[in-house]
Nucleic acid binder design. Structure first.
Lengths: 225, 225
DNA sequence: GGACACTCTAATGTCAACATTCGGACATTG
DNA sequence: CAATGTCCGAATGTTGACATTAGAGTGTCC
């Protein structure tokens, strides 16, 4: 799963990771594929015995996932997979809009040719995506690349705190108008790349806003807007 | 220290907290008051013996502070207090500007009279602040209240991820034009409250932008802009 | 019959010991 | 003398046991 931040082709320095990261990846994937539906209680002991690691790394992983907004927890009350209400979706969308506004402006201004090529490559892969899950992953990867092109570390970190929630929302809505999603999204992203390549801030911002608005309306229940 | 999210008057139900939170508060305070200057290596064993707790809570606290951007760490390489470069300050300022833009719009639209009273109270306290440290704390508390008035949970969380860095930057710059800071900041915040009370989005946004710009210029070295 | 207090259990919070890994000092070799 | 390889110490990563607490269930009293 494209959860790490590799630029999708750059060979990362293959740095060592701890068990906590692997546990986090496992649990995150399990949440996305529906193994742990929203509302599920995640008990440290269960996970630790299921994954055959001690509770330490599990605890760390859960804290990490809570930072990504996938879990909510309280004192002595464990962790629960979030259930995204309508208000939650609105919050995510407005915050995402704000962050992406800055990201697009930065990307238009500072994206290298290599960055743009990466974006084009991801957009191109979308046209060959075979199922909706893969398309969602590519959608997220595309926006990752936009933020990366902005070269703004803290902005990327802020994106990371809602990225998984966006992902969760998208996959949880798979099934409502899949064909529409499959049909329109690849083309939209290709247009986004072109707008960035043209270095036209206003046009790019408008396209990105339309893209978010369209996705929100389609996925929020209103069919083929 | 007003590090928790209490609305500055509401006596929280004093709910049970873990050792990790207390450790985090201690270390955060120590960073702010200069006990741990930027670049300091924070070793888990040292902290655990100094604070007389085991490494578990210390580890958790350090992870939390890393999430606030006060520390940086790597695999098997411990945690180091951040040193804010010029680029870092620019990043913090731009991200803060973006987040605050949304926060102010929300606050103008949705702030209750009680929220506004809280803001006015904090702004009023600034006039009686006796030292710069207290003024900085009140400055942060004021912006906390603005975000709180927006009623946008994830936006508040995003603010939390840079809040401590803003705090760190402000206290690290105490000494350069303290008198200017002390003289102008209380009045500026009173104006900000009035703008919010007037429910005028454009005016409020402009004042908040000016406020940030002024603070940045003063604290970045250029005196009395 | 309903409300309160108690107990009991299962989960989280904490701890101290063990295993692994990074960085540097030292010796070795071309 | 520089580059490389090895060893060692100290810090982090991991583990399992112990302490504490929230919440459910039960029993009693009014």
């Amino acid at each position: 799963m494209a959860t790490d931040n590799r630029p999708l082709g750059g060979v990362g320095p293959a740095r060592r990771r701890g068990l906590a990261d692997e546990v986090a990846d496992s649990v995150r994937a399990a949440i996305f594929d529906g193994t742990y539906p929203p509302g599920t209680q995640l008990r440290e002991t269960e996970l630790s015995s299921a994954l055959e690691v001690s509770r330490g790394p599990v605890r760390e992983a859960l804290m990490c996932l809570e930072g990504e907004g996938l879990l909510r927890s309280g004192w002595h009350r464990g962790a629960v997979v979030v259930e995204l209400s309508g208000e939650d979706v609105a919050e995510i969308d407005s915050l995402r809009g704000t962050l992406e506004h800055l990201a697009v402006r930065l990307a238009v201004e500072r994206a290298s040719e290599e960055d743009l090529d990466t974006l084009a490559r991801v957009a191109d892969r979308m046209r060959r995506a075979e199922d909706a899950h893969e398309l969602v992953a590519l959608d997220i990867a595309f926006h990752d690349a936009v933020y990366a092109a902005g070269g703004h570390r803290r902005l990327q970190e802020a994106w990371h705190t809602i990225r998984s929630q966006v992902h969760l929302f998208l996959v949880s809505r798979i099934g409502v108008s899949v064909e529409d999603y499959l049909a329109t999204v690849p083309g939209e992203h290709r247009d986004l790349v072109e707008a960035l390549r043209a270095r036209d801030p206003e046009a790019a911002l408008r396209l990105f806003a339309d893209h978010r608005s369209h996705a929100l309306h389609v996925l929020t229940g209103r069919d083929r807007a």
